[in-house]
Design a protein around this nucleic acid. Sequence first.
RNA 1: GGCUGCGUAGCAAAAUGGUUAUGCAGUGGCCUGCAAAGCCAUCUACACCAGUUCGAUUCUGGUCGCAGCCUCCA
Length: 461
Amino acid sequence: MLKIYNTLTRKKETFIPKVAGKVGMYVCGMTVYDYCHIGHARVMVVFDTVARYFRYLDYELTYVRNVTDIDDKIIQRALENGEEFTGLTQRFIDAMHEDERSLAILPPDSEPKATESIADIIILIEKLIINGFAYVGSNGDVFYAVNKFKNYGQLSRKKLDELQAGERVNVDEAKNNPLDFVLWKMSKSGEPSWKSPWGQGRPGWHIECSAMSTCCLGNHFDIHGGGMDLQFPHHENEIAQSEGATGEKFVNLWMHNGFVRVDDEKMSKSLGNFFTVREVLKQYRPEVIRFFILSSHYRSPLNYSDAQLDDAQTALTRFYTALRGIKMSDVAIDNDYKVRFDTAMNDDFNTSIAVSVLFDLAKELNKVKANIEQAELLAATLRYLGSILGILQDNPDEFLKGGGSSNYTLSIEKIETLIKNRIKAKQNKDWAMADKIRDDLKSQGIILEDAAGNTTTWRRE
RNA sequence: GGCUGCGUAGCAAAAUGGUUAUGCAGUGGCCUGCAAAGCCAUCUACACCAGUUCGAUUCUGGUCGCAGCCUCCA
């Protein structure tokens, strides 16, 4: 039985889909004006794993993840670059898809864009005005009147009168209440804009997600996810908008992933302490990043450091070493391990324990290697359970010979020639020569492993 | 100031009212010409102080420390 932590109730709840056998899940995606950083990668990997697990449990999942392709920062960045905002956003959408592919993130079922949802957004705002939740401010912008929505603050557990609006930012005088947020913003000349009943303008950030989730999944759906920082005000505002417009409950279950930190501080664009995915990929291969993310629980903070990524690399080496040399055949799966794995994942996607089950599996696999039938069963189980986490799908030999992403000076042919020379030296009991060859290779990042019968395998450090 | 959440061994990271987490690193062994890999064994814990309990790392209260949100942010 799958249990998921619901931010709305702050409890793990047994997951009961709205419609039996089906799941609708919406996740707040990127605002595309820059490359994805490791924090973005975490959201993508976490919810990709959630999606994979739902499918593994035979749910018919509809996974929607939006793209915010119009907002102040996009406009500003396009202006700085002296380019059309559409060119900017398309470039970073492409880059994002590239990053996703490298991290083995399966594409969502639907990826709506804000700029393609303007009609839905306008309809939603009109409903909010009719229902008395929205008003046109003195500057022509349309605002949401926060105090009209009875349950405002239910998700973030904030009370309206305790929120110190304007403490860190200047209050917009066009609003009735400092906490009111913009639904439709009038455009200045030269800015991208769309026609609306309130004049040429563009949507506010929060309303986009209400429109895009509802249009793809209906007024009321199962799961809404995103980073912790979106809890307030973004997701709080989404609830107010959607429920204010439809009068229906919006989302049953809210999932929020923890942050990636650098030196115990949040990794963020505003702090400037971020590492982009493509930057890290120069040093580590994609599966290492994915494993690093899944090695801790999705709600815990995750500290980014080279040491941690090195650990992830070592862990994967252990797995692939266990898998190496075993024929991958379509044999059955060991049910005991599957049950343990499922139990871990059913407990709010506890990937940390799920991974530890895989380590136990690898250990047993190493022990039974002489027994081919058993080894094949365990190897197949390891690969199958790994696939649910989106890891261990490489060819083991290729993984082990691939090493990090640094430049290689030694060709495979050269390495293999040296190994042949070393085997000859070994046969002549010329240990000094054999050891020299091994040490030379080691200094170039090549580790040799002798096996029985004068065979030697190698891998990169 | 208000609201969340966290504090686990050398590092990373889970669970749990009493029983081995797990991975890396360390130590001792097995294997090996020697290594590597692997296997076996083993040392390092639950921020602090009270309380509840036969028993608390796990529950409750307090103290200290850290992070996040209260502006855009995944």
